[in-house]
Amino acid sequence: MSVAREHLVTLLLRLADDHLILGHRLSEWCGHAPMLEEDLAMPNIALDLIGQARALFQYAGEVEGRGRSEDDLAYLRRERKYLNCLMVERPNGDFAHTMLRQFYFAAFMHAFWEKAAASSDETVAGIAAKAVKEVAYHIRHCGEWVIRLGDGTEESAARMQAAVEALAPYVDELFETDAVSEAVAQEGVAPSPASLRGAFEATVSRVFAEAMLEMPAAAWPQTGGRQGRHGEAMGYLLADLQHMQRTYPGAVW
């Protein structure tokens, strides 16, 4: 495989894993939401994420050319081969934490997909064109909750601010660049994550102002996800995710 193709596969897996793992976390809420309307809203978002993950895995498998299906890629890699950022694998915490994490991710991905819609790679552009609309709603839905919880009761404001602090160490990793991200940016396949910071911060500060939230204090940024170094929670997540595929190798479902 050429270096360019290898880079493309890595890019696609990073994106696909972000969506798969965050979709997994969000779906853990199903049936346990604070109100029934939210029990419909969160699966809508999770289904968007899983749909995006599937499109990305399918394309990754195709580019890789080793005959791996979406399920092979989603279910049958070892932990160190998953390339998602650390934020998406963080345990759900309370509703404030879940909404803020989703809002951050949506704010980042919206900026990403907007640029990627003009990708030199037609398939990436196609995925982006569909995803950018889905994720615009995620920003709205989760942003409205961030505003309500931030500017709701004393308790909700405290919980929201605690979520801001808890997630602060995981924000920087979204914008991390390396040889792969810069190479695909160079070829016009996908934007460099670093270039999306301004758009991300504009979205966040607009919502934070309305939510009466303070931007987080400087935190020790955590990193490693893009190289497959994850947190302790990741192994348990994968144990759930891979349970069936590992128990019954080779079976068709």
Binding site: E37, L40, A41, N44, Y137, R140, H141, E144, R148
Partner: peptide
Amino acid sequence: MALNAARD
């Protein structure tokens, strides 16, 4: 929130 819920 009512509009969002109706959409969802």
